[in-house]
Amino acid sequence: MSALLQARGLGKRYRGRWALANCTLDVPAGRVVGLVGPNGAGKSTLLTMAVGSITPTVGTIEVLGGRPGSGAAQLAKVGFVAQGSPVYTSLSVADHLRLGARLNPGWDDAVARDRIARLGLDPALRAGALSGGQRAQLALTLGIAKRPKLLILDEPVASLDPLARREFLQDLMEAVAEHGLSVVMSSHLISDLERACDHLVVLVASRVAIAGEIEQLLATHHRLTGPRCDPADLPAGLEVLSASHTERQSTLVVRTEVPIRDPAWTATPLNLEDLVLTHMSRRPTEPDARHQLAAVR
């Protein structure tokens, strides 16, 4: 089974600025992937490259084993709902379903009609008259009834109120369970995606800060509290992500594959939000990052 998404040294430059740089990712199939990062971190750039809307400046990207945008077969495998869930404001809900039916060989009309009925959308209503949440649901319906293997959603809940957010995600999860979909969706808030996702990619300042299975990430990140010390003195195998010190005490957030056995330290698990925030607040310090930036200049 081919990987959901595989990127190698992927980068996209707009007018001399790298929107995404040196991105290497491997996401196995069958996952619900959350793509998290602050605004402008390159989330949309990565997703639009994954659907083939834009072409990479450097590197390669493969989605479900195919090159994005390589033709009708690839388009049929990947569904995409862009940021803001664009729909044709002058077309009715029924027109949108008809559009989907005419343009997609694998269109599942029963699923589409069923969803529209369940959501309580009036098929005769113009899409321009729908609320933000209804519009997002309509766009999602088009994406699901297309019956893709992978559904890519760019900030699907950004414009929704908290209640609509919850309903949207719940509904999405039902569809995932029902149709065996893989999903990649982005948000700048981890709390939106926490419950829905089992795989996480964090983008910070155009680069991948961390990526992996959420369970795995939670198991390898710890907050250590202990007597004040210099982080350099810590044993090998511990990567210190952040450190704060008081007069007598040090608090470290570390990543490690090995269990913490030193009794001097109290290890507490990190929740996902803290984990992501820790990575987000770090400056990109890898040597290749500086290298890349120097090359851009």
Binding site: A72, L75, G79, Q83, P86, V87, T89, K146
Partner: peptide, 13 residues
Amino acid sequence: AGTHHLAWNQGVT
């Protein structure tokens, strides 16, 4: 309107 994302991500190139 951004609808090109909708139109160009159906099954038609």
